[in-house]
Amino acid sequence: MAELLKVEGLETHFQTREGVIHAVNGVSFNLKEGETLGIVGESGCGKSVSMMSMLRLIPSPPGKVVAGKALFEGNDLLTMNDEQIRNIRGAKISVVFQDPMTSFNPVLTIGDQVAEPYRVHHKAGKKEALDRAVKYLELVGIPNARERLSDYPHQFSGGMRQRAMIAMGLICEPQILIADEPTTALDVTIQAQIIELVKRLRDELGMAIIWITHDLGIIAGLADRVNVMYGGHIIETAPVKDIYKNPQHPYTIGLLGSLPRMDETEYRRLTSIDGLPPILLEKPSYCPFEPRCRYAKERCRKENPGLKQVEGDGHFTACWVNPKTGKEY
């Protein structure tokens, strides 16, 4: 399949009172047509900021994308003019955010908001755009969609708002849907509804998806490929089955070990990762996971390992040490 998106060496900084936060430190990845990419990692590791940087949605100041390229169909999103990026955002690439309460405007109706991207990008009239909104609201399972066009966001339940957000993200049939923790605030039964829905739409519309989450369970059933992030870096990337069956980075190994599993019959003490994620006031010239890593060696404090290929096809990790042997590669 053809490459749709190619991100190279993305770096983003935030100016804060404490100094410059190095939120994203050289993120590179590709996305193919129709592919689902999962991005996992704990709070603050740079998942949202890397996506927002790519789409030029970083509040500036304090934020600034200081390096990198993001080629979409060969054109760099970071250097194109404002009109060009506006034509892509919301139409060819759309984003669904974590919290639909803050992403919907409380004083506008659901119908007008869901229809908005279509009205803008297809220069459609109000009636045509609303008809299209009905179609997409029905698609995401809002009953009596036409009657509910004039509802305001507070009249929808959390799960319904999230589904309406997805309808809005899909109304222009994007080539890429970026979903930033869209189910984190929802109950598991509603989460399951939404994930089934997204899978079905993906297969019907053939779009690519970037799904951001800290839940390794969701990714297991949804993604083709997974990027694990830590401290503003991608520290491991592999096809989904390889990440779970054969994790290579000590952080990924730790994360998977810290999850209880529902199919375990014997009690097992969870392996915890001691310590805390880093606050990056400098670009790390060392491995960012070093303070928490049980495999750390002298070299890890001095040099930051880049991604390199290990094991199978498309499996890359950023670590000096082979965790199986405990020795440097």
Binding site: I190, E196, I218, Y244
Partner: peptide, 26 residues
């Protein structure tokens, strides 16, 4: 049954084969 069936497993090999009970509505 529906609640348990909705929980995602951190295992792509298991997820591949699972059939979910999807509850309707809220």
């Amino acid at each position: 049954q529906a609640l348990l069936s909705a929980v995602p497993y951190p295992d792509p090999f298991v997820e591949e084969k699972r059939k979910r009970i999807i509850l309707e509505g809220d």
